[in-house]
Amino acid sequence: MLTLEDCLGLCELDEEEILAIAEHEHVPEIVALEMAQYMVHLPEGTVMIKRMILEDIQHAKQNNNQSHAEVLEKALKHFIVNHPEFKAPSTQ
């Protein structure tokens, strides 16, 4: 049987990104992992994931949970760095 850790090893997102999706969608981590792996291959999937994480950050800040907002911001930065469609075009 595969564990969550096994599935994370096969996924294109890391644990913090998956946890942010689980929080946003109110689903267990394994379901969020399946959703994320599917969404990351959709034409607008990475934009959807980024939006989810941004909404989670906003929600954490509105609830005065700065430490959680910081964890989510770290997850967002990691997500942006690891998905080339978010990188600024180079100027020559």
Rank of each mutant, 00 (worst) to 15 (best):
M1I: 03
M1A: 09
M1G: 10
L2S: 08
L2I: 00
T3N: 04
E5T: 01
E5R: 02
D6E: 09
D6Y: 02
C7T: 00
C7D: 05
L8C: 02
L8S: 02
L8K: 01
G9L: 06
G9T: 01
L10P: 01
L10F: 07
C11I: 02
C11H: 03
E12I: 05
L13P: 00
L13Y: 00
D14S: 06
D14P: 01
D14N: 13
E16L: 13
E16Q: 13
E16H: 10
E17L: 00
L19Q: 10
L19E: 11
A20M: 12
H24E: 05
H24D: 09
E25V: 03
E25F: 05
H26F: 06
H26E: 11
V27I: 12
V27T: 13
P28L: 06
P28F: 05
E29R: 09
E29Q: 12
I30H: 05
E34K: 09
E34Q: 15
M35A: 03
M35E: 08
M35R: 09
A36Q: 02
Q37T: 09
Q37D: 15
Y38D: 12
Y38H: 12
Y38C: 07
V40W: 05
V40A: 10
V40F: 07
L42W: 11
P43C: 01
P43G: 03
P43Q: 05
E44P: 01
E44Q: 11
E44I: 10
T46E: 06
T46N: 14
V47H: 13
V47C: 11
M48K: 14
I49S: 03
I49D: 01
R51I: 10
R51Y: 13
M52C: 12
M52I: 01
L54A: 11
L54P: 03
L54G: 08
E55Q: 15
E55V: 08
E55C: 06
E55K: 15
D56Y: 02
D56G: 13
I57C: 05
I57K: 04
Q58S: 15
H59S: 15
A60M: 08
K61V: 06
K61P: 00
Q62R: 15
Q62I: 02
Q62G: 13
N63I: 05
N63D: 12
N64R: 13
N64S: 13
N65A: 10
Q66D: 11
Q66H: 06
S67Q: 14
S67I: 10
S67G: 07
H68F: 11
H68P: 00
E70N: 13
E70D: 15
L72S: 00
E73A: 07
E73R: 06
A75L: 08
A75S: 11
L76S: 04
L76H: 04
K77V: 10
K77H: 10
H78R: 11
F79I: 02
F79R: 00
V81D: 09
V81C: 07
V81K: 13
H83W: 08
H83E: 05
H83Y: 05
H83A: 01
P84G: 12
P84S: 15
E85F: 04
E85V: 13
E85Y: 06
E85D: 08
K87E: 14
S90F: 12
S90N: 12
S90T: 14
T91K: 12
Q92H: 09
Q92S: 15
